[in-house]
């Protein structure tokens, strides 16, 4: 077990290095130009003259060739320095991430929880009532949730629950008038959380349903039935635990999609998290900030997979045995 963790964590720097290099190369090859983006964002209608561009690039340390920039960034990273965000006018990237991490983690964590519980309930219900109208409904909505663009769902959610019904606030993470900011209130969390969960639950639900149906054909399920074990017990105590083992791994592999989905959702709901910051950093072509966000994302993905993997080992007695 320790060896597994160790091996993964040893690989982490390599993964991060590769990811960072990729971001650098993409930014370098991208037609989006930081100076251009800066002038467009700051002063409407201004022209970027060659002199101005040269001055900006000098001030931002962009005049060096790409490899030099990458190495100097890397050198600072090794010393634990993520650099300064150009978009945030020179604020340390670490501070920007710190401010934004909490709301994002709350949103992602609670949405993941809702996704898992919801997908389990819906998946089990669909499998238990296979081919019934309920199954059809759950399957159709799961497919729909997977293929309908999430920003569209988000806009619809805002329209219905905030505009039409006026049940929930349309944006922000806490009351604008009475709270000083930096907090997350449940009433504000509900809509983005449910929207994110709704748009992400599709694969999970279908997966639970399909693995469950597969497991239900297994010999031990038939044996349990042969012994007269009740329908509900067969489903929950015999089939479900087996179906959940691969499901745990699925959670790990779906973390990137969850993070990706949160970028759109956070943007629509004006959520003060990393997803929203990602959009802003991308528009401003703020490479240090983008790099840091991507690295945080990569760490989350690696950790998520690691945890899923460990969990997988812990819950499957066959593998747990071989690790002792």
């Amino acid at each position: 077990m320790i060896a597994v963790v160790g091996r993964r964590l040893l690989a982490l720097p390599l993964i991060l290095f590769a990811v960072a290099l990729l971001v650098f190369l993409l930014a370098w090859a991208s037609p989006y130009d930081p100076a251009e983006a800066y002038v467009q964002g700051a002063a409407a209608g201004d022209a970027l003259t060659p002199e101005l561009r040269e001055q900006f690039e000098r001030a931002w340390g962009l005049e060096d060739p790409m490899p030099v920039q990458f190495l100097s960034w890397l050198g600072r990273l090794v010393q634990g320095d993520l650099g300064e965000s150009r978009y945030l006018s020179g604020a340390p990237v670490v501070d920007a991430l710190k401010d934004r991490a909490y709301p994002s983690l709350v949103l992602l964590g609670s949405a993941l929880g809702v996704v898992l519980v919801g997908a389990l309930l819906a998946g089990v219900a669909a499998a238990a009532f296979r081919d019934s109208p309920l199954d059809w409904l759950i399957r159709t909505s799961a497919y729909a949730a997977t293929f309908v663009p999430s920003f569209w769902v988000a806009l619809l959610a805002v329209f219905v629950f905030a505009v039409q019904l006026d049940w929930l606030p349309a944006a922000g993470a806490s009351n604008l008038r009475s709270v000083d900011g930096g907090r997350v209130e449940f009433r504000h969390l509900l809509l983005p959380m449910l929207t994110l969960a709704l748009t992400q639950h599709g694969w999970f639900t279908l997966y639970v349903r399909d693995t469950l149906l597969e497991v239900l054909r297994d010999d031990y399920v038939r044996f349990a039935e042969a012994q007269g074990v009740g329908r509900v017990a067969v489903l929950f105590r015999h089939a479900l635990p087996n179906a959940l083992i691969p499901f745990v791994t699925l959670i790990g592999t779906h973390i990137p999609e969850l993070i990706g989905g949160s970028i759109l959702i956070e943007s629509v709901f004006g959520w003060p998290g990393l997803g929203n910051l990602t959009r802003q950093a991308a528009i401003a072509v703020d490479i240090p900030l983008l790099l840091a966000i991507v690295l945080v994302g990569a760490v989350l993905v690696v950790l998520g997979n690691l945890i899923a993997d460990l969990l997988y080992r812990v819950i499957d007695p066959r593998i747990r045995e071989s690790m002792r």
Partner: peptide, 20 residues
């Protein structure tokens, strides 16, 4: 899972609901 789902609730602040 239930715990994760409740993270949000735990973070929910007091709500005075004043909306002007």
């Amino acid at each position: 899972l239930a715990l994760v789902a409740l993270v949000g609730v735990a973070c929910g602040g007091d709500e005075d609901g004043s909306t002007g």
